[in-house]
Design a protein around this nucleic acid. Sequence first.
RNA 1: UGGGGCGUCGGCAAGUGGUAAGCCAGCGGUUUUUGGUUCCGCCUACCGUAGGUUCGAAUCCUACCGCCCCAACCA
Length: 567
Amino acid sequence: MTTEAHDPTRGDDGPPNFIRDMVEERLRQRPDAPVLTRFPPEPNGYLHIGHAKSIALNFGLAALAPQGGCNLRFDDTNPTTEDTEYVESIQRDVQWLGYQWSGPVRYASDYFEQLYQWALQLIREGKAYVDSQSLEELREGRGNFHAEGRPSPYRDRSVEENLDLFQRMRAGEFEDGQHVLRARIDMSSKDVKLRDPLMYRIRRAHHHRTGDAWPIYPMYDWAHGQSDAIEGITHSICTLEFQNHRPLYDWFLDAIGVAEPRPHQTEFARLNLTYTVLSKRKLQRLVRESHVDGWDDPRMPTIAGLRRRGVPAAAIRAFCERIGVARRDGNVDVSLLEHHIREELNASTRRVMGVLRPLKVTLENLPDDFQVTIDAPYHPEDPSFGARPLPLSREIYIERDDFMEDPPKKFFRLAPGQEVRLRYAALIRCVGVVKDASGEVTELRCTWDPETFKKNPPDGRKVKGTIHWVDAKAAVDAHVNLYDRLFVAEDPNAADDFLSTLNPRSVERLRGCKLEPSLAQLLPGHSVQLERLGYFCADLDSAPGAVRLNRTITLKDAWAKIAARQT
RNA sequence: UGGGGCGUCGGCAAGUGGUAAGCCAGCGGUUUUUGGUUCCGCCUACCGUAGGUUCGAAUCCUACCGCCCCAACCA
């Protein structure tokens, strides 16, 4: 029997959802039916984990069909906010997540000419007109939830005049704001969106792709559905806030005469995460005001940030599968994301040792030239990870947190007179504490029990604690950044000012950390588990002589809970 | 006080007339030279509320309540 390799990007492992049901039903009726979706970001910011949900959905749906595909299309209709930096980062992030769009990258700006021709058609058919009111007049005329809109005095211009004005708009004869092109729908509609929405505005701005070719730019509603139609998209998936746009989406498709089968819009709830901010505006502000070190700061929920933090793409995919897709707004607990990060890293990383806050320990009863090399496995459950040689001599470093002069109950680590196991080595007993003038502990004097080297004590005594350590001579120095959540509020969006809920200790930059020698060669972007401490990833600038680690996430810590209860 | 949506365990989320899956979190235990992992339990939801239809309703009907989105020449 051959097992078909499961494609992790296929997206059918999570709970069922109404959109997938819809697509599967279509495929039941016609197995060769095309399923063409698209991921349509505006290139005005970096992708974040909320986008990952949409990406996983769109690519996952397309993968359901033999004739499936998902396009990457930049919705680049607003040149003043868009930039190629974002065009590039978005492509990089989508691919890093493990997805490949079908065919070339698409741009709404590729369709500007077609859109323009369709607009001329609508004008000729009396379905669009040039309005020359000011912004204020336009707003006033649109009315509000309680007041109907009033027709613009320009609403009944002749086709000829409209054509002439619109062509001159396109030719660049007018200034920004002088005219707009509007669809002639219904100024008295209860749906404000249908009160003659704007199709074009004059914007004499340089576009990142079309340069100065166009002085007019289409609005979202006029560009999006038409782009879908041009590409033959079957399922136009978007988030809930676009529900109000669906009647318009359909109106424009009707107006230009796109017949069935044609694209249809379906909405789902966007992702919200606890202790996280996912609005582009807010993320932008964090970057602009330097509350973080850029879009790829490891504390950012951006794909670039998560990547630099050491979060595997597979963990993000699994998370997106797990949270499901529905129409109700929610707030997903960030611990679910953390669960998937740990799950993935637990299976994929080597276990090694490193000491973050070193405390020197001298093993008194060992000779000065004592030296052993321990063969230590890289993974406790998976021998295929192999092993590495671990040197140990008379002086080692242990974690400061692993020693307490006056320990509380259930502290299974080092304390005066107490015994612990050195991971992969032997039991040691603390027989002396050296302090400096200020009373700070600077060194521990311990004895090494050779009878317990790599085996349990012959006398049957039980020692519950095992601590990590690094040989002092062989240690590799490193800088390690410890990250915590960026916000202290469960819902930063609920605060008057989300910045007031910023976590002042979201990063701790440690110097002089001591790592076992095998870590000197850790490649940038690669992850390991530092035993008992968590998962760490070598930063972009990490090098053999200057190792830089980012902590992706801690291990679950039962002791932390016990200790918290005791205080 | 308009229009469009949505309300199932602490958080996600199945279920769409036959008597409430699963995951996360939390709690307890097992295994363990990581207080990690694994494994095993517990977490006993009157399905927003109130009526109604039905032998039977989270699922159908009615009313009410609550939350989200829409009045950008943003997407």
